[in-house]
Amino acid sequence: MEFGFIIPAAIWLAAFLALAVVLFQASRKAEKEGRKSRHLMWMAAASLALGGAAIPAAIQFIATEGKMWWAGAPLAFIALALGFQSIRVERPKGPALATFREKSAAVSVAAILLIYGWATVGVLQAPLELEGAFGFLVGTSVMMIIVMALSHTVLAILREPEKQDERDKLVGWRSTRNGYVVMTVGVWAVLALVFAQAPLGVLAYALLGLFVLAELVRLASELVYYRLAV
């Protein structure tokens, strides 16, 4: 296995990190002086993302002998999100139609329906073998993380999240209870599949489906409690 690329990769990483620090400082200075720093924000986030992606990309490059270098993408997206969040942007201050938590629940429901709905259609059309099922589980989960990180970052940029109050907590508790009921029933259903000696691939899909369903019930409950009564 070749390790010759480590030194140039480290230099590349260090250069990007240094660039990110310089850009952050420049953007903060611009902000203090009342100048808009959106272009700096973009550059800082992008440099952070490229730098952050280098580590997992290098690890994957070594572990898979040149394949799967794209594994740095999730970290790149997280770094992008951090880049955006660490720089303040002017946000409107008037009354909001919904709280950050309510919007977050709505966006999460949409993301789950979109990603897992699309994945379910794919699986139903062409069921995967066990090896494929593992890749499918990891792939959809990573996609969810990326979409959630980006959408919540955008939400936070558009309007400052409010402090959680007692109603938010009550809504959260009751919604989690509803999700937990689904999870408990689902675990028994999956156990029944185990005793029925269902194939491992089916069990994997069933487990993922169960988590998704429980999360959907929790988030949908939040939306209902926020809009109707708690």
């Binding site: 009354p95 919904a98 402090k163 109050d165 007692e166 109603r167 938010d168 109707l228 708690v230």
Partner: peptide
């Protein structure tokens, strides 16, 4: 007084004040 002003004074969100006013939420 606006709902937002009351919310700030009581330290809850404006949406909680709206819910209390409309009888959708009984506060602590």
């Amino acid at each position: 007084m606006t709902q937002q002003e009351l919310a700030d004074l009581v330290d809850v969100t404006r949406q909680t004040v709206v819910a209390i006013e409309q009888g959708r939420y009984a506060p602590s």
